[in-house]
């Protein structure tokens, strides 16, 4: 199916920003948003939409490394959170993605619409994950990779922690189907979980995913995040 012009543009913008995040993760540097930031008003809207797609992972390098984000990047992130308020009928993954963005903002910026020190938003419900078959569980977790962080103890992370074998199965399924983005996302989660079967071969699996799908910056982002997380875990 041919993509509409808008969605192709959006996809391109998401890829550009993902590339910037990958560079920052590799270099331990600031996220620069080099291509997308130099945009006029219309493309500015595109940039916000692209940041919304990528979610809190835009600022992942600044969560994983103790470096503050560049003010202009943080400003775009804040504007994105404001520009896409949560709708009452939003799907659970959208609620969690939004929650993750607001939480990241709270960590790295002054709180939204409130005095400093404002409490974080209450967590959305994550019960749907406990009832999900392993295929669905992995798919949903791969959409929620901004929550795959060391020390994360939100309800989604706890649900993943309860089902390491199921997430590992989902990784295998995604690789078999050549869904590299899902495989990389599942792999990032797996680096955080105890009880992953040794026979999975996670480390070589992530290298394989990168080899096969790494030209997509969104895949590279997840693989690189997994490496950073793994290295952080090795240091602990």
């Amino acid at each position: 199916m041919e993509q509409s012009g808008t969605s192709a543009l959006l996809q391109g913008a998401v890829q550009d920003i993902a590339s910037d995040v990958v560079s920052a993760l590799r270099g331990g540097d600031h996220v620069r948003m080099s291509g997308t930031m130099a945009a006029d008003d219309i493309e500015g809207g595109l940039a916000l939409a692209a940041v919304r797609v990528l979610g809190a992972d835009l600022l992942l390098p600044h969560v994983l490394f103790p470096t503050p984000p560049a003010p202009e990047v943080l400003a775009v992130f804040r504007r994105t959170v404001e520009a896409f308020p949560l709708r009452p009928d939003a799907a659970p993954t959208v609620r969690w993605s939004h929650w993750a963005m607001r939480r990241t903002l709270l960590r790295l910026d002054t709180p939204l619409n409130g005095p400093p020190g404002m409490a974080a938003d209450p967590e959305p419900d994550a019960g749907w994950l406990d009832d999900a078959p392993w295929q669905t569980l992995t798919h949903q977790l791969a959409v929620l990779t901004p929550l795959a962080l060391p020390g994360e103890d939100c309800a989604v992370a706890l649900a993943a922690r309860r089902r390491p074998v199921d997430v590992a199965r989902g990784f295998v399924r995604a690789v078999r189907r050549r869904d590299w983005q899902q495989a990389a996302g599942a792999g990032r989660w797996l680096t955080l979980l105890d009880g992953v079967p040794d026979t999975l071969g996670l480390e070589t699996g992530l290298d394989f995913v990168e080899l096969m799908g790494g030209t997509d910056p969104r895949v590279a982002l997840q693989v690189q995040a997994a490496r950073v997380v793994r290295a952080a875990g090795a240091l602990v």
Binding site: W134, R169, R173
Partner: peptide, 13 residues
């Protein structure tokens, strides 16, 4: 054990 873990994935696929 290996098969109990991974066979469900192959069957699904």
């Amino acid at each position: 054990d290996y098969l109990a873990t991974w066979l469900p994935v192959w069957i699904d696929d």
